[in-house]
C-alpha cells in the first residue's frame, strides 16, 4: 500500500492563510492597544506597555460614542426583529408555496446590493432638498430634517440589516411548517397557542442566528453612520476608523477596536442571560412530564433536528 498523507492537510493552506492574514493582524492590533503614540509623526510604539489607552477609551468623549453605539445596536436589532418576524412568517407560512422562491429572491436582491449604494439611496431620499421633502412641503409639512441625526442612523441600520434577520427566520419557519403545526391544531390548540408553543420554540435557532447576524455587524457599522449620521450620529466604527486614518493614533484606535469586541461579546452574553431568566418560568410551566420512557427517543430526535 502507498503511504498516504493525512487528509486534514487539505485544510493546511486555508489554516496558513487565515493565520497570516487574520490571526496575526488582529493579534498585532491587540498588542498595539497596550502601546502609545510617541510623537506627531509616529503612529504607535510598544516599548512601554500599559493600560493607559484603555483608560483613554473610557474618557467621557469616547464613552458617549460607545453608549450611542450600544443604543443604536440594541434598538436597531429589536426593531429588525419586530419588523422581520412577521415578514419571515408570511413568506414561509402564509404565502402560497409557489411564490416562495420569488419572495426569497425579492429579499435577496436588496441584501446583495452594495451596502454603500443602498445607504446613499437613503441619503437621497432623506435629503432636505430631495423629492420626498419637496412633496411633504407641498402638503404643508416642514422640510425633512432627519439627515445627520441619530434617527437617520437608526433608520439606515434597520434597513441595511433587515434582510439578515428575515432570511434565517424564514429558513427556521420553513422548517417548522407542516406536520407539527397541523398536529397542534388537530389536538385543539388555537393559532396563538400553536405559534407560541410550537412554531416559535422550534424556530429558536433561526431567531438566535438572526439576532446575532444583525447585532454583531451592526455594532461595528461604519458606512451607515458615515453616510447618514454626520457629526451627531457618531458610532464606534467611525471613531476607530478616524484614529487610524486621520488622527494616526494606532495605539488608541487599536484599544477602541478591542473594547468594541469586548462590548459586543458582553452584550451578547448579557442578552442571552436575560432571555434565559425571562423564559425560565415559561419553560417551567410548559414542561411536559411524560411517564412512559418510550417517548424519550422521539423527543430527543426532535431536539436534534432543531439543533441541526
Amino acid at each position: 500500500m502507498r503511504k498516504r498523507l493525512p487528509g486534514f492537510l487539505l485544510a493546511a493552506p486555508a489554516w496558513a492563510w487565515l493565520a497570516v492574514f487574520f490571526v496575526a493582524p488582529v493579534g498585532m492590533v491587540v498588542w498595539f492597544s497596550f502601546g502609545y503614540k510617541p510623537s506627531i509623526f509616529a503612529t504607535q510604539a510598544t516599548d512601554r506597555l500599559s493600560f493607559d489607552r484603555y483608560a483613554e477609551v473610557f474618557s467621557p468623549t469616547f464613552f458617549a460614542t460607545f453608549q450611542n453605539t450600544l443604543w443604536v445596536g440594541v434598538v436597531g436589532t429589536v426593531l429588525c426583529f419586530l419588523i422581520g418576524l412577521p415578514v419571515a412568517y408570511w413568506m414561509a407560512v402564509k404565502a402560497p408555496p409557489s411564490r416562495r422562491g420569488l419572495l426569497v429572491a425579492l429579499v435577496m436582491v436588496p441584501f446583495w446590493t452594495n451596502f454603500l449604494v443602498r445607504t446613499l439611496g437613503w441619503q437621497v431620499i432623506l435629503s432636505p432638498d430631495g423629492w420626498l421633502s419637496t412633496a411633504l412641503q407641498g402638503i404643508g409639512f416642514e422640510p425633512l430634517a432627519i439627515l445627520n441625526t441619530r434617527g437617520a442612523v437608526l433608520l439606515g441600520v434597520v434597513y441595511n440589516y433587515l434582510p439578515l434577520m428575515i432570511l434565517p427566520l424564514f429558513v427556521a419557519f420553513d422548517r417548522v411548517n407542516g406536520p407539527l403545526r397541523e398536529a397542534s391544531k388537530d389536538l385543539g390548540a388555537g393559532k396563538w397557542t400553536t405559534f407560541f408553543r410550537i412554531t416559535l420554540p422550534l424556530a429558536q435557532p433561526g431567531i438566535i442566528a438572526g439576532v446575532l447576524l444583525v447585532f454583531i455587524p451592526l455594532m461595528g457599522d461604519y458606512i451607515t453612520a458615515t453616510v447618514l449620521g454626520g457629526a451627531k450620529g457618531n458610532m464606534v466604527g467611525q471613531l476607530v476608523a478616524s484614529q487610524f486614518q486621520t488622527a494616526q493614533n494606532w495605539a488608541l484606535g487599536s484599544a477602541m477596536a478591542v473594547v468594541l469586541i469586548i462590548v459586543i461579546l458582553a452584550t451578547v452574553a448579557v442578552g442571552a442571560a436575560i432571555v434565559w431568566l425571562v423564559t425560565l418560568p415559561i419553560r417551567a410551566s410548559h414542561r411536559l412530564v411524560i411517564g412512559a420512557p418510550a417517548t424519550a427517543p422521539a423527543s430527543a430526535s426532535i431536539h436534534e433536528e432543531v439543533a441541526a
Partner: peptide, 26 residues
C-alpha cells in the same frame, strides 16, 4: 477550524480593516 472560521465571520469588518492596514505596512 470551525471555531476559527466562526471567528473570522463574526469579527466586525472594521476590525479586520484596521488590523490589515498596519499588517500590510509591516
Amino acid at each position: 477550524f470551525m471555531g476559527l472560521l466562526l471567528l473570522v465571520s463574526v469579527t466586525p469588518e472594521i476590525v479586520d480593516a484596521v488590523a490589515l492596514l498596519p499588517w500590510m505596512v509591516f
